[in-house]
């Protein structure tokens, strides 16, 4: 393990240092005093681990392909943007467009997430990306979703607080959303339908809740004791009938 003080380094200098440490064979790197530096872990490959103490800037782990990143603090926009593989664990909140067009890997967020999270998530056969949100999500959650699994647990929701914002799953045409609790159909995009979870769904949820509970030192059984619903698209071609051939 190697520690690196990010204090007063700009993002370019910091990322050059991170890459040079990792290319020298270091498998675990601790970044202290991270304060808004963008693009940490962009395009990184392999199975290294980066532990961030502080608040990383936008596009953390964009296009990342394998590593594990722990954030001890909140994260900004675009975490895991178009990420292909790896795991990100955020011990705090994260903001907008988290997991935009994610293709693989897993994101675990202890707290809340912002707008347009998990939009255009992809999936193909066994390669299905996963986002687990401990708190609540903003508007347009999982918009245009085409594959993968997104789970919102809504732990510690205050009275009147909702699991997800409006237009949840708008334009969705693949993948599945699991919500712990219920959702008002008025909050859903018109392309999604609400369904009861099956035994198979619960096994899938449990698999990721096990990880979530372990990362954040929570009681898995307590999380699983509340009922879940699932959201899936009506149709994999929501706009198939929109056009007339000219």
């Amino acid at each position: 393990m190697r520690a690196l003080d990010a204090k007063s380094l700009d993002y370019k200098a910091l990322n050059i240092k991170i890459k040079s440490y990792l290319s020298s064979g270091i498998k675990e790197l601790v970044l202290d005093n991270v304060n808004g530096q963008r693009f940490i872990g962009d395009g990184l490959k392999g199975n290294c681990k980066i532990i961030i103490n502080g608040i990383p800037g936008s596009d953390l782990a964009a296009f990342m392909d394998g590593p594990t990143i722990e954030v001890h603090g909140n994260a900004q926009d675009g975490v895991g943007n178009t990420m292909n593989a790896g795991t990100i664990i955020i011990y705090g909140d994260s903001r907008d467009t988290l997991g935009y067009s994610m293709r693989g890997g897993e994101l675990y967020i202890q707290g809340d997430v912002g707008y347009r999270v998990g939009i255009h998530m992809k999936g193909y056969l066994a390669k299905q990306p996963v986002i687990v949100v401990g708190g609540k999500a903003g508007d347009f959650f999982a918009e245009y979703m085409a594959g993968g699994i997104q789970i919102v647990l809504g732990l510690n929701l205050k009275q009147e607080e909702k699991l997800v914002g409006n237009y949840c799953g708008a334009g969705m045409h693949g993948g599945v959303i699991y919500l712990r609790g219920d959702v008002d159909p008025a909050q859903l995009g018109k392309e999604v339908k609400k369904m009861a979870v099956t035994e198979e769904d619960l096994n899938i949820i449990n698999k990721y809740v096990v990880n979530f509970a372990e990362y954040f030192k929570m009681d898995r059984e307590k999380i699983m004791s509340k009922s879940f619903i699932k959201l899936i698209p009506y149709n994999k071609r929501p706009y198939g009938n929109l056009y007339a051939k000219w």
Partner: peptide, 16 residues
Amino acid sequence: MIPEGSDAISPAPHHD
């Protein structure tokens, strides 16, 4: 990485 036979939808803006 989208379902076979689905429309491949590119949103009007990049949402980032």
